[in-house]
């Protein structure tokens, strides 16, 4: 059964009573919250998500509770609890859905040292995964969202989860879009479902793009890394697509990892083994369409060379 199979009021009742258990790739999270915005956001952009059975092992118990602001301007606040403990300060109640997604990423990132976790978007087509590691402001989320709208499978918009066997584990949650990206994607794909909006966050306005049903349906299917592309959006910039040093890619991934230092030498060897079979590039672009064409050409060139399509 999927979230779309229950109504918003039913979902709200579940969120208040036993909680809503969701499978997210290798994990199960159970969410409790009486806040309407959470139910609405979940129902809209999480529609394709399967509901897990309550008897399953729950990795993260997440609860979002309303709180009264005790200082001026006495706004209505909420607070996130993980396993009964609040690791963060309260936030405006209108940001609750966004905080659920953010909190879930935090749980996965801080409690999964068995994997090597890199800050990167990951998408896949034709059996080959593309990593898009990049600092904020590079346009990676917009590019990731656009690729997903063009039929690429979403593994994650934030977290590349590298298993010891060198494959990437999917956690296809809604793609987070900020500020102007939201309009870019609405314009790019008018039928895209975008919701769960949080205003006035430290990053500005944040909204979420619903992932395709196919991406969610295949969330137990790992993917083999084949491409690493460093995107850099600059308005008005001509397209520039050039190979990027593998050695420097390795060091960049290591320095943009949440837990590389914990893996020591085996983390280095894992990244090195993965990169042996990857092509690495820099992609500088001023037009989203240019960037997409470039990435699609990369994927199909690879497919042609390998005799697959």
């Amino acid at each position: 059964m999927k979230i779309a199979d229950v109504s918003v009021p039913q979902l709200q009742r579940l969120l208040v009573a036993d909680g809503v258990a969701l499978r997210v790739g290798p994990f199960v999270t159970c969410l409790h919250s009486p806040i309407a915005g959470v139910a609405e956001g979940l129902h809209l952009v999480g529609a394709h998500h399967p509901l897990a059975k309550r008897e399953e092992f729950v990795d993260f118990d997440i609860e979002i509770r309303p709180r009264l602001g005790l200082r001026p301007p006495f706004r209505r606040l909420a607070q996130l609890f993980v396993d009964g403990i609040a690791p963060f300060n309260p936030f405006p109640i209108g940001q609750s859905y966004a905080m659920f997604e953010w909190g879930l990423n935090w749980c996965i990132a801080t409690r999964s040292d068995r994997f090597l976790l890199v800050h990167s978007a990951v998408v896949e087509k034709g059996g080959k995964a593309l990593l898009l590691p990049a600092p904020p402001g590079s346009g990676k989320s917009t590019l990731c969202a656009a690729l997903v709208c063009c039929g690429w499978r979403l593994l994650s918009d934030e977290l590349a989860i590298l298993r010891p066997d060198g494959l990437l584990a999917p956690i296809p949650r809604p793609v987070s879009l900020k500020n102007t990206s939201i309009d870019v994607i609405r314009h790019f794909e008018p039928s895209a479902v975008i919701g769960g909006t949080a205003h006035e966050t430290i990053k500005g306005t944040v909204s979420y793009l619903r992932p395709p049903a196919d991406s969610v349906d295949r969330q137990s299917e790992p993917a083999k890394p084949a491409f690493v592309v460093f995107p850099k959006y600059e308005a008005g910039s001509p397209l520039r697509f050039a190979p990027h040093s593998k050695a420097r890619t390795l060091v960049f991934l290591a320095h943009n990892s949440f837990n590389y230092h914990v893996h020591g030498a085996s983390g280095f060897e894992l990244l090195a083994d993965v990169l042996e079979h990857c092509e690495c590039y820099d992609l500088r672009y001023g037009s989203l369409d240019d960037a997409l064409r470039c990435v699609e050409a990369l994927a199909s060139a690879g497919a042609r060379e390998r005799g697959t399509t």
Binding site: P26, F27, V28, E56, F57, D59, R111, S112, D113, R114, F115, H261, V262, H263, G264
Partner: peptide
């Protein structure tokens, strides 16, 4: 140990070994 809890236990061992080093 079943796969669900095993993830957490194995992850904690990775961290513990790193801490020891």
């Amino acid at each position: 140990v079943p796969a669900g809890p095993l993830h957490h236990l194995e992850s904690s061992l990775v961290l513990a070994r790193s801490h020891d080093r």
